[in-house]
Amino acid sequence: MTEELLGSALVEEATKKSGLVWVRGTGPARALWHVWHDGAAHVVGDGPGEQPLPGLADGGTVEVTVRSKDKGGRLLAWTASVRELSPGTEEWDAAVAELKGKRLNALDGEAMPGRWARECRVLRLEPRSSTTELPDGSLAAVPLPSEATTRRPVPAALPKLLFRKRRK
């Protein structure tokens, strides 16, 4: 019993401090931002401008790997049951209030919860068991295909602006 309580406390504390968890459902593992609230991790996605949640089905089971916030290494893994929250319920409202506070770079600000209710899914990942024994090796995988881009061609005038000599 004591070991179980320590495991639950470790899952909660590590997951709270990590802004990103790796979640593996039926497909490959994906990095997801989340919020810890009311004894579970909550994620939002599958809508325009939000993170994809493939392989996370209501009533399913997933494996969550928590990383260290400072070093990025794996700390522990835990198994979770997935439950989709229904918009308009007390539980959904509480989870969305927490998620809204942590959502970075949202375009619609105060209208975000309404958009999430119409177009997205909010999932509760409730811990079932945990382990601190992690698999050997890096578990590195080829990045998943995505429409996201991080680089565009440099504008033609930029080198001239950056490297011109200042006149006195």
Rank of each mutant, 00 (worst) to 15 (best):
Asp108Val: 13
Lys165Phe: 08
Thr65Gly: 04
Trp36Lys: 01
Leu99Lys: 01
Pro127Gln: 01
Val96Gly: 11
Val35Asn: 00
Leu107Asn: 05
Glu119Cys: 11
Leu123Ala: 01
Gln51Asp: 15
Leu139Asn: 10
Arg151Val: 07
Trp92Cys: 09
Leu56Tyr: 03
Pro155Ala: 08
Val96Lys: 10
Thr61Met: 14
Ala148Asp: 10
Trp92Ile: 08
Asp58Ser: 04
Ser18Gln: 02
Gly39Ala: 12
Leu6Tyr: 03
Val82Pro: 02
Val44Ser: 11
Ala9Ile: 10
Leu10Cys: 13
Pro87Leu: 04
Leu5Ala: 13
Ala31Asp: 10
Val11Ile: 05
Gly19Tyr: 01
Thr131His: 09
Glu147Thr: 06
Glu126Tyr: 08
Gly39Asn: 11
Glu90His: 06
Lys102Thr: 12
Thr61His: 12
Arg115Asn: 13
Ala41Cys: 12
Glu4Asp: 13
Thr79His: 00
Gly27Ala: 09
Pro159Tyr: 03
Ala106Leu: 14
Pro127Cys: 03
Val35Thr: 00
Glu13Gly: 09
Pro113Thr: 04
Glu91His: 07
Pro28Lys: 05
Lys16Leu: 12
Ala141Tyr: 11
Thr65Met: 02
Gly88His: 05
Asp108Phe: 07
Pro155Gln: 06
Leu53Cys: 00
Leu53Asp: 02
Gly73Asp: 14
Leu56Ala: 02
Ala148Arg: 10
Gly45Thr: 05
Trp116Thr: 05
Arg30Cys: 12
Ala97Asp: 09
Leu144Asn: 00
Met1Thr: 12
Asp38Cys: 13
Pro52Arg: 02
Thr150His: 09
Glu110Thr: 07
Ser146Ala: 06
Trp36Tyr: 03
Arg151Gln: 07
Ser129Leu: 04
Asp46Cys: 05
Ser8Gly: 15
Thr89Gln: 06
Leu158Ile: 10
Val96Arg: 06
Arg103Cys: 15
Leu139Gly: 12
Leu32Tyr: 04
Thr79Leu: 03
Gly49Ser: 04
Glu98Ser: 11
Ser146Asp: 06
Lys69Tyr: 08
Glu63Trp: 08
Asp70Trp: 04
Met1Tyr: 11
Lys16Arg: 10
Gly39Leu: 14
Leu56Cys: 02
Ala80Met: 01
Gly114Ser: 05
Asn105Lys: 12
Lys17Cys: 12
Lys160Arg: 14
Ser81Phe: 06
Arg83Phe: 06
Leu161Ala: 13
Ala106Val: 14
Ala80Lys: 00
Lys160His: 14
Arg74Glu: 06
Gly88Thr: 06
Val35Arg: 01
Arg24Lys: 13
Ser146Pro: 01
Arg118Asn: 12
Glu110Met: 07
Arg67Ala: 15
Arg103Val: 15
